[in-house]
Computed example of a mutant assay.
Amino acid sequence: MYTHQKNSITAGVPVAEAKKAVIFIHGRGSSAEDILSLNNHLGIKDAAFFAPQATNNSWYPYSFMAPVKENQPALDSALGLIKELVAEIENAGILQDQIYFVGFSQGACLTLEYITRNAGKYGGAVAFTGGLIGKEINMQNYKGNFKQTPVLITTGDPDPHVPVSRVETSKGILEKMNAMVSLKIYPGKLHTISKQEILLAKEIVFDSNQLR
Rank of each mutant, 00 (worst) to 15 (best):
Y2S: 14
I9D: 05
A11W: 08
G12W: 00
V13C: 02
V13L: 09
P14H: 08
P14T: 10
V15A: 15
E17N: 12
A21F: 00
I25H: 01
A32T: 00
E33T: 05
E33M: 07
S37L: 13
N39D: 07
H41G: 01
H41C: 01
A51G: 04
P52L: 11
P52G: 06
Y62D: 11
S63E: 15
M65F: 10
Q72T: 04
P73L: 11
P73T: 08
D76C: 10
L79P: 03
I82G: 07
E84H: 02
N91S: 15
L95N: 13
Q98L: 00
I99R: 03
Y100E: 04
V102A: 04
V102D: 06
F104P: 04
F104W: 10
I115C: 01
T116D: 09
K121M: 08
K121T: 08
Y122P: 03
V126A: 02
A127I: 05
F128L: 11
G134T: 01
I137R: 05
N138F: 15
N138P: 09
N141P: 00
G144D: 12
N145P: 01
N145Q: 01
T149L: 07
P150M: 08
L152S: 10
I153M: 03
T154H: 05
E168A: 14
T169D: 15
S170Q: 09
S170M: 08
K171N: 04
G172H: 11
L174T: 03
M177R: 00
M180Y: 13
V181F: 09
V181A: 09
L183A: 12
I185S: 08
K189C: 05
Q196C: 11
I198H: 00
L199K: 12
A201N: 07
K202S: 01
K202T: 00
V205M: 00
F206D: 08
N209Q: 15
Q210A: 15
L211I: 06
